[in-house]
Amino acid sequence: MRRLLVLLSAVAMFATAQGVMASAAGALKMVDIDSSEQARQRGAEIVVGTCMMCHSLKYIKFADLKEIGMKEEQITALLEDQDIDDRMLSLTPIEIRKESYGKVPPDLSLMAVARQKGPQHIYTLLTDYYYKSAEQEETDNHLFPGIKMPDVLAYADAESDDERAEIEAQAHDVASFLVWASDPSAESRRTIGKYVILYLIILTTLLYLLKRRVWSKLH
């Protein structure tokens, strides 16, 4: 009974925490985001080439892209005026960005963890644009109605399923890259974690056996 109670409380605690997290997530497209280096590299190229017109990724340096397997030449090919050791800041002056969109576009380095179900949020956002009317003048976004960001991947313009699939693949790669950017140490964290947990399981088993032995002296 006691154990059941503990278990129950733990489950309820998790449920509460999960409830907090899930409550704001709306109609997201629940794609799986793959974390291969290729996807991340393609994502990095789109982010530098497109998104950085408006957005910065101030916690990342270009040189850090080596961590997702990019070669020095690949990185330098992405640079304009910047140095490889510079932070990934948008080259468009901040006043211009602010003036054009009414607000400074948010930094993207933490975007994948700054929204409920961040990776899916990014993916959905980029592929949720549509034309408000048949005249095809103004776009809007299902996930974020009234968003000040234009349809940068031109999803609303896509005319065939193939085109849409291509943009969806791009959105996926962008999300994959931004997941890495939000926590570059995640990979090594999980690798170390496996050893730590394995070690602890062995240690705890030994402690359990030791405990049994020590206690067996009691009658």
């Binding site: 925490a17 907090v20 997290m21 948010p106 933490l110 963890v113 700054a114 929204r115 409920q116 961040g118 939000s182 926590d183 964290r189 999980r190 170390i192 974690g193 496996k194 730590v196 947990i197």
Partner: peptide, 15 residues
């Protein structure tokens, strides 16, 4: 700590 540290950090607090 190693596999789900973000579980305890609300997304809003990464803004």
């Amino acid at each position: 700590v190693f596999f789900a540290p973000e579980f305890w950090i609300m997304p809003e607090n990464n803004v």
